[in-house]
Amino acid sequence: MRKHLSPGLVLLLLFFVAAAALPFFVDPRGHLLRVAAMALLFAAMAQSWNIVGGLANQVSLGHAAFFGLGAYTSTLLFLRFGISPWIGMFAGAALAAFAAALLSFPTFRLKGHYFALATLAFAEVLRVIANSWASVTGGPVGLSIPFLGTKPELFAFRAVSSYYWIILALLVIVCLAFRLLARGAIGYRLRAVRENENAAEVAGVDTFRVKLTASIISAAFTALCGTVFAQFTFFFDPDSIFALSGISVRMAMIAIVGGLGTLGGPIIGALFLIPLEEVANAYLSSAAAGLSQFVFGAILVAAILIQPRGLMAYWPKSKAGRLARKDAKPVTPATPATEGGR
């Protein structure tokens, strides 16, 4: 492991240390810490997405499905049976992993647009179910988690800083998982699938199994994030937790703006986008309804057009940076469309 300690990794470790120290320097109940916690949570979500979206290039537009499953499972277990969300979150992760496996069977052959469409529809199915199966899910009004003061065993705290540290720990774990996966044998197989699935299959990679493993791990982590989100915000409803633009797209967008398939990408993306959105919300939402969301959409369009490899491309030593420089040098002025037409 030691020989892999690149400057980027050192920077990442320093970032985690600095992030862990942040609550000592700002108001532990303040708004700033809430925003920071949200940014770290979205970083963890984007990193979870990155496992399947970045490493295997299976662009999912339905990760809100797993996020919502996590939030609903732990919250319902707690509200109905008094089971601590600490246990509930792993039940949620297990359920999400199962759902991911189930979804893999009809979608594993799908690529690119088709995969994105199928996952999008899957999240929509869950949203419709959560809305209409009111006797179990509480229906469109959503679920509220009662305020309990500080009860660590029930995942309830008075101070924002406690949630903040839990979220940070989750982010560290997801990042660790991402790195282990990316560096391990499965990472090479996933990259082989990404570059050329048929060639990978011929070379003896069990592509279905590799993708299945990645999507199960990705879904489980996303569900953990869902539980933490529910506990942190105390309230959620079907339309917000299974939201296409609010959750599914945002997870992917953070990873893409930061740098698809890179370890640091989701963190940089979240630290850039979530505060930006917060500022946009604070200053623009009073100006006109929809303006902040409009800005969000416009940033996504701009990010894709300006630097499709994400902010990581500006870090010269990263792979994204090398690839971006390669992009900048066109091979021939007019490359024929080999992929687009058909």
Binding site: N57, G112, V249, I256, F296, G297, I304, P308
Partner: peptide, 15 residues
Amino acid sequence: PPAAQVFLTVGLLIA
């Protein structure tokens, strides 16, 4: 690549 197309049009949708 398809990912860029997907996200450009999704961004357009939101905007």
